[in-house]
Simulated assay, not measured.
Amino acid sequence: MRPSNARGLVALRWPAAMATAYAATFVLVYYISVHTVRGRVVSDASLRGALLSGASIRDRVDAILDVVSVGSLLGAVATVAVIALIRLDRVRGLAAVGVLVTANVATRVLKDHLLVRPDLGLDEVGPSTLNSLPSGHTTAAFSAVAALLIVLPSAGRVAVALLGGGFAACISLATMFAGWHRTADAMAGFLVVGVCTMVAISVVVACGSPRRHAQAGLGLRWWVVVSAGALSLGVAVGIGLSTVAPVRDSLVGSLLAFLSAGSLIAGTVLGVLAGMLWVLQVTESDTERYGEPA
């Protein structure tokens, strides 16, 4: 049945707050990595490190990136639809498909029409004024994970989040090995999916779809701790490299910058996933507390 007004107000505040946090982080990532000299030079160093590291596995990188295609997205839509049908939950199925569509469309619009990459007079590996943020490949892979989290029962979400998040992180690193994207592009892709997922969860809550069931402990506190640690390490290395140009521009500096990129990507995907799982959990808990009997 449709949720009561009290339950709706309580439950909707959580996805709204998380969407705001994701959006604010997106703006911060975009500004630092695109509009500041320090952000640009460290980002360029990490891309150089990725190209050096991935030179010997280029064929494997291409194979990994070929997995993400229009066909794979259609496959994700079909999978989501089947799970929703099995669970007799049309609202969640439509919301999950909405994440797949809106996240990928939003990424394309942001990258091609709304966001710009100004010329700061820097000598960079990639085209200095060609905006590549957010990463389309990262968004496509991660949106499939988010869609599954929406339609799956709570018991299966942690495993899917870990496996899917790892896959999405590998895709984002592969785009760096191929020279297509920078670190912030992947981080922005994760955050775009996060915002779209919070909107989808709000729709689910507003339509009264959340079901009453026991909530298993997800251990999300540790997800947040690991995410914060990885992000802090990545930022610390980046700041260090940005202040010591001779090291940053050396081979060792490029490799360190790439390791910093990997840490930032891992921290971002873990943090966004933790937010998704927590909001799904708390909105369903609110349903149990405030919802009307099924």
Rank of each mutant, 00 (worst) to 15 (best):
V91N: 06
V37Y: 04
R289K: 09
A168M: 06
V237P: 01
V77Q: 02
A78E: 11
L270F: 11
L28Y: 08
V41H: 03
E292Q: 11
Y31S: 12
V105R: 05
A214I: 12
S209G: 08
S242Y: 08
G271E: 09
N5G: 04
I64P: 00
L88W: 13
L130A: 15
M276R: 10
P210K: 08
T268N: 07
R90N: 00
V105T: 06
A147S: 13
G164H: 04
V82W: 15
P293V: 10
H137W: 02
H35G: 06
A76M: 12
A200P: 02
D249G: 12
T20E: 06
A155G: 08
V237D: 04
S69C: 09
S250Y: 01
L52C: 04
G217I: 02
L280Q: 14
I265V: 15
G179M: 06
V109M: 11
E288C: 08
L115V: 02
S172C: 10
L264P: 00
A200H: 03
A184E: 14
S53I: 07
T107G: 15
R92V: 08
V224D: 09
I64C: 09
V151N: 04
A45W: 08
S263L: 14
L65H: 10
L259M: 13
L280D: 15
A106H: 01
A257D: 04
A266L: 15
V109N: 08
G156L: 14
T287V: 05
R108D: 11
A50T: 11
H181Q: 12
V68C: 00
V91G: 07
L28W: 10
L122K: 10
G189K: 03
P118D: 11
L152E: 00
A146H: 07
A174R: 02
L133G: 01
R117V: 06
G8E: 10
A50I: 09
V91L: 11
R2G: 04
L152F: 06
G291K: 01
V282T: 15
R212D: 15
I57C: 09
V204S: 09
S72L: 10
F167N: 03
V192R: 01
G54S: 08
L110Q: 12
S202K: 11
G208A: 12
S135F: 01
I83M: 10
A186K: 00
G234Y: 04
L231T: 12
L251C: 04
G98V: 00
T129Y: 01
A95R: 02
A245K: 05
A63H: 13
A261K: 00
T287K: 04
